[in-house]
């Protein structure tokens, strides 16, 4: 599998409410991330907007429906549509989540958690290899946020991710908020995660906010990035100097100017930028 070069920069997700901003003025981002499924359509305005945005910005594709953890394997029709979109969008890379979305033809449209077992590792590796062969490129796999743990698990999530990268040559999209959310929900130290994850495989970083629901944190992507996540991000960036970092906001989406302001905070929290400015 080919080597995927790093892309160092700061970006935002391309959301419908901001289409006109992108069409009418220069937006100071180094790349935009699209939700693949929102553009895996036959035609109409979203694709027209994507074409225009692609003329000005680098694009990365981020999916929610590949279902890499599905015991039943991947959907070739889905992959064919994804590949067709990639030929149009010419992304830096394609990513999806370490999760499964359904079984036996049912799709929950949620990112469901996996038990970290040897069998699950074999399944996910086989699915990643199939996707990479089909798409003719390495993919990025994102660490999920999760709310349950399984009695069957025999390894940690970061051990699972390391094995995935070693066996398949895939890369990682590291979601710092997801590490924090899962650490609180499952009671592990996020430093252990960062120490154990194969950070040399990280090509992209997600930053997001979450909600508090009793003792659980919920990965809702509807708030600003909170202080503990910024602190964790700084720790991560000391270890990963080059990566594509972005704010991921999917709900309660503010005006684009607010997100650009939050992206400036991300720049300021990136140690390399701060040292350069000093």
């Amino acid at each position: 599998m080919e080597t995927l070069n790093s892309f160092d920069g700061f970006g935002l997700g391309l959301r419908t409410v901001h289409f006109n901003d992108y069409l009418t003025r220069e937006i100071p981002v180094d790349f935009v991330e699209i939700i693949s499924e929102n553009f895996m359509i036959e035609g109409g305005r979203p694709l027209r907007v994507l074409d225009a945005v692609r003329e000005r910005h680098a694009v990365v594709m981020h999916g929610v429906s590949m279902s890499l953890g599905s015991a039943g394997g991947l959907d070739p029709d889905y992959l064919a549509r994804l590949k067709a979109l990639a030929e149009r969008a010419r992304p830096l890379w394609i990513s999806d989540h370490l999760c499964w979305t359904g079984v036996d033809g049912f799709n929950s449209h949620d990112l469901l958690p996996l038990p970290y077992t040897e069998e699950a590792l074999d399944v996910v590796c086989a699915n990643i290899r199939f996707a990479q062969d089909f798409l003719e490129r390495p993919i990025l796999v994102e660490n999920p946020s999760s709310y349950v743990a399984f009695s069957q698990s025999v390894m940690t999530e970061w051990e699972f991710l390391r094995a995935l990268c070693e066996r398949t040559g895939c890369y990682l999209l590291l979601d710092v908020n997801n590490i924090y959310v899962s650490a609180v929900n499952h009671g592990f130290d996020p430093s252990d995660y960062i120490d154990g994850a194969p950070l040399d495989r990280v090509r992209q970083i997600h930053l997001a906010g979450h909600s508090v629901n009793g003792d659980l944190l919920i990965d809702t992507h509807d708030h600003d990035v909170p202080e503990p996540v910024w602190r964790l991000y700084e720790t991560v960036r000391r270890r990963i100097p080059e990566a594509a970092a972005m704010i991921e906001r999917d709900d309660n989406i503010p005006p684009l100017g607010d997100l650009l302001g939050e992206l400036d905070i991300a720049r300021a929290h990136t140690p390399r930028n701060r040292e350069a400015a000093a």
Partner: peptide, 24 residues
């Protein structure tokens, strides 16, 4: 919650149970 969920299974599994219906 299925029996193989650890800890406070009902509350934790409830996040997925609720999210499924809420998303649809």
């Amino acid at each position: 919650a299925p029996a193989f969920i650890q800890g406070d299974a009902s509350t934790k599994f409830g996040v997925y149970h609720n999210a499924y219906r809420a998303r649809l």
